[in-house]
Amino acid sequence: MSNVQDYPSRLSDPASRKMETFSYLPPMTKDQVRKQVQWIVDNGWNPAIEHTEPANAGGYYWYMWKLPMFGETDVDAILAEIDECHDANPAHHVRLLGYDNFTQSQGANMVVYRGQMV
């Protein structure tokens, strides 16, 4: 049996909370984020951006940044919106979603920027 690492994520420690699969990895580089956005676009999914305070990240409700970008295929435009959301809410977590029209659900969900507890 392989050694499985335990991540000490606790509700009492907001800095330790994990929000999705990628949050267990080191932060993504700009190039890695670009590749994820490209993958969402290549699959024909609709990107959307959400943000919230780190203390509320475990909740189901995140604030939507503008409307989902229905039909948007320009990766640079999507990345610009992610950065604009982060610039407007520097202390918030910012996540990128990819909505799959066929299954009518989220096909991708990743935190791109992690905010700091204030």
Rank of each mutant, 00 (worst) to 15 (best):
T21E: 10
V33L: 09
I49F: 01
P26D: 12
Y63W: 04
M110P: 13
T21M: 06
S9W: 09
M64H: 07
Y60M: 14
A48E: 15
Y61T: 07
Y60R: 12
D6Q: 13
G59T: 12
R34Q: 15
S2T: 14
T103D: 12
M117A: 10
L96D: 05
Q32N: 11
Y7D: 11
H51Y: 05
Y24A: 03
Q5H: 13
Y24P: 04
L25R: 13
P26N: 02
V4M: 13
V118I: 05
D42L: 03
V41M: 06
P26K: 07
L79S: 02
R17C: 01
L97F: 05
D83H: 01
S2E: 12
A57D: 08
A15M: 13
P14E: 00
F70E: 09
V111S: 01
Y61P: 00
N56H: 09
N101V: 08
P8A: 14
E81M: 01
G59E: 02
Q5R: 06
V41R: 07
W65M: 00
T103G: 10
S9M: 04
Q38Y: 00
D6F: 10
H93V: 05
V111M: 01
C85V: 08
R114G: 04
A55P: 09
N46T: 15
I49D: 03
S105G: 06
N46P: 11
V75F: 04
E20D: 12
K18C: 08
F102Y: 09
M28H: 06
